[in-house]
Design a protein around this nucleic acid. Structure first.
Lengths: 181, 181
DNA sequence: TTATACTTTCAATAATTTCTGAAACTTCAA
DNA sequence: TTGAAGTTTCAGAAATTATTGAAAGTATAA
């Protein structure tokens, strides 16, 4: 399978960005390709399009499945597996976010909680704990907010953005409301 | 310089997480150490505490400076440079966020904008562009929101979190307000 | 100036991560 | 059953990334 130049540049770019988004180049390319194609692709087609080995395709698909980002489709009378991106762009972004939260934030939060249980042995440790506590609160707040925003869903978020000019506005509105009642 | 066990586990953990946060292990450790210590450290002390070579310390500090996460201090009569974490935890988190936005989102947004200017050559490309457009809008919205939230500052964010239960609540309030006026 | 106390750079090396391809495995139609 | 068409696994090779340490560079006190 041959990619058109537009699709190819998207796929290659996504591959390079992949590493920054938590997966490696191949997985990034794989995902980009599946997101952009209008029909399911077989593992062979994917490997051919991206010029990578069959084994690498298999590993990449496995990884994407562990992120719940792709789905398998069976075509009756055909033994091959066909793969598509799972759900809407919003769903996918959500999953990537969730997964990254799990990998990047949660382990840190849990370590911080543990370290904060210890009694500080001296001034240095006491100062350190103050900092750890700040970090903990910040991460917790950020996590809660991102979950809230995710739960809002894309439309509300989009509408709201266009409507005013972001949260600042909303907060003003809230304040005005609260001062009335 | 010897790290206490509490500080050591924080530093090591941050090193491991570092790679997920956009910098390498050493840089992560360096940063964690500087954040948590109550006094500025010299490059030698840092290297000794982390058991890494002098050259590596220098590279790491340079990287952290490019992120604007640390500051140099000169002590009169002492030739050494001393380093501290720059600003509050909130400031640092902001800088990390900004930097990551620059590295992870902006290049993608700009590529997407370019690709969307091309006329689709066929149905496949047309479908691809629809997807690219969705991704573009999503990234743009997410970016704008995160900027809004950053501009809000930590106190407001914190207060708001505690006050209601996140954005959902605020939106309800907004709706009620709008329907009155 | 010069000696000294420090920092930075960078080529070589080490460590880690990714990729390949052949072998093992699975599934299904005949 | 068997064999054809497919998928997965995994040891070794290749590519990438991080680290060291020695040499070059810089600043300051005398």
């Amino acid at each position: 399978m041959q990619m058109s130049p537009m699709i190819e540049s998207f796929v290659l770019h996504f591959g390079e960005m992949g590493s920054r988004w938590g997966f490696n180049r191949t997985v990034g390319q794989l995902f980009a390709l599946l997101v952009v194609m209008d029909k399911p692709l077989s593992a062979n087609e994917i490997g051919e399009a991206l010029s990578i080995s069959r084994g690498n395709v298999s590993m990449g698909l496995k990884e994407l499945q562990s992120w719940r980002l792709i789905q398998t489709q069976h075509i009756p009378g055909d033994r091959k597996d066909y793969y598509t991106a799972a759900g809407s762009i919003w769903d996918m972004a959500n999953k990537v976010f969730e997964e990254r939260r799990k990998r990047e934030i949660e382990p840190t939060l849990s370590l911080l909680r543990d370290l904060l249980l210890d009694k500080p042995a001296n001034d240095t440790e006491s100062h350190a704990q103050d900092r750890l506590n700040e970090i903990h609160d910040l991460l917790e707040t950020a996590t809660k907010w991102s979950i809230e925003l995710q739960n809002l869903g894309p439309e509300k978020l989009q509408t709201l953005m266009k409507l005013g000019s972001g949260v600042g506005k909303v907060l003003e509105v809230k304040d005005r409301f609260l001062s009335r009642s």
